[in-house]
Amino acid sequence: MFQSSRSVPRWPWLAAFAFALLPALSWAHGISAEDRQRMLEGGYLQYVGLGATHMLTGYDHLLFLFGVVFFLTTLRDVAKFVTVFTLGHCITLVSATFFGLTWNYFLIDAVIAISVMYKGFDNIGGFQRVFEMEKSPNLLGMVFGFGLLHGFGLSTRLQQLPLGDDPAAMLWRILSFNLGVELGQIAALAAMVAVLAWWRHTHAFRRIAHAANLLLIALGGLLLLMQLHGYLHDSDPDGFRFPAQEHRHLHEDMDVDRTVDPSRNQL
């Protein structure tokens, strides 16, 4: 269904590259103990810096943005879609954090992973090929909707930080983090747009564009599986650890500690 017109299969290479990125993907949203302590000791600039770092290492957000701007050829179109996405994630990032609205972040990130797959699927004309639709769903509306979702995902992680009890100070910390997110997004987008602008003027773009979006779908799928796996660990931690008590009873039943029979030392 998602195969290239070239006869050489691309999936083995895509899978190899995707698995090579898994260690980095697994740390896409972590808030470390060092970050928490730095927030307690620092000021608003700490939140700006963490927001920027969080966006620059938020691979699911960057993959989605990469898919959004992949075929945009004018700065006006880039600005339009990025503004809509930014508006969406600012709304939920600020409001959900301030009012303490949250959900299981593994499930939120799983849906964000689906947004990555969605954009890759849209970029290869999936709606036309698979569903025989004349055109894809309204992209501007979808980008805004996914922006709301991405902002909610950012909010669940920000709420892990010490934000204080004073509403005014808490709001400034949230806005500082949000400013950092926007600065990180601008830096990442500048690099993406520059690379894509150069790439489009090469002969390789037409040959590799389809495979690049297949890779986007594959990475989104891996992120989805990873987040669902994390959710299962989070919702049922006892189901994923070795039952030590049962293991001890099993050893007692098998008498495995008696690996040597001392009675054999006597004739």
Results as ranks from 00 to 15, higher is better:
31 I>V: 15
112 I>K: 00
211 A>F: 00
210 H>D: 07
86 T>F: 06
157 R>G: 05
198 W>L: 14
20 A>T: 14
109 D>V: 01
117 M>I: 15
148 L>I: 08
186 I>C: 04
237 P>C: 08
45 L>P: 00
5 S>W: 01
181 V>P: 03
27 W>Y: 15
119 K>G: 03
63 L>D: 11
87 L>S: 04
253 D>F: 11
79 A>V: 10
127 F>Y: 12
225 L>F: 13
187 A>R: 00
251 H>R: 06
259 T>H: 12
66 F>D: 01
12 P>K: 14
1 M>Q: 05
219 L>Q: 05
100 G>M: 04
57 T>P: 01
179 L>H: 03
35 D>L: 03
111 V>P: 04
119 K>P: 02
12 P>G: 04
80 K>D: 09
241 R>M: 10
251 H>S: 07
263 S>P: 00
210 H>N: 07
132 E>Q: 14
201 H>S: 11
93 L>W: 10
177 F>G: 03
11 W>Q: 05
203 H>G: 12
72 L>A: 09
223 L>D: 03
170 M>N: 09
153 G>D: 06
138 N>I: 00
261 D>T: 07
172 W>S: 11
230 G>I: 03
172 W>R: 13
110 A>G: 11
38 R>G: 12
165 D>H: 07
39 M>H: 06
90 C>E: 13
201 H>Y: 06
181 V>W: 01
164 G>M: 09
229 H>D: 13
175 L>A: 09
153 G>V: 08
30 G>C: 02
238 D>K: 08
232 L>A: 13
62 L>M: 06
136 S>T: 10
205 F>Y: 15
198 W>D: 06
10 R>C: 05
117 M>W: 04
27 W>H: 15
230 G>S: 09
43 G>I: 05
236 D>N: 15
214 L>C: 08
86 T>S: 13
257 D>V: 13
52 A>C: 12
228 L>G: 03
242 F>V: 10
220 G>V: 07
56 L>P: 01
177 F>Y: 14
210 H>T: 04
46 Q>E: 14
118 Y>D: 00
165 D>P: 01
64 F>T: 07
218 A>C: 13
104 N>Q: 12
82 V>S: 10
180 G>S: 09
38 R>H: 12
201 H>N: 12
166 D>G: 04
123 N>T: 09
176 S>C: 12
259 T>C: 05
186 I>Y: 11
255 D>L: 07
44 Y>I: 06
239 G>P: 12
227 Q>G: 00
131 F>E: 11
125 G>Y: 09
174 I>T: 02
107 L>T: 08
41 E>G: 03
151 G>A: 12
36 R>A: 08
94 V>E: 03
199 W>K: 08
123 N>P: 05
146 F>N: 01
211 A>Q: 04
6 R>Y: 13
18 A>E: 08
156 T>C: 09
33 A>Y: 05
120 G>H: 02
31 I>L: 13
176 S>A: 15
249 H>K: 08
216 L>G: 05
236 D>S: 13
21 L>H: 07
53 T>R: 09
207 R>K: 15
203 H>D: 15
190 A>Y: 08
266 Q>G: 01
41 E>Y: 07
34 E>I: 10
37 Q>F: 12
22 L>I: 03
94 V>K: 06
123 N>Y: 04
148 L>P: 01
144 F>P: 00
225 L>H: 01
236 D>A: 14
238 D>I: 00
167 P>N: 00
13 W>S: 13
46 Q>F: 03
131 F>G: 01
76 R>F: 05
125 G>S: 11
18 A>Y: 11
235 S>D: 06
206 R>G: 10
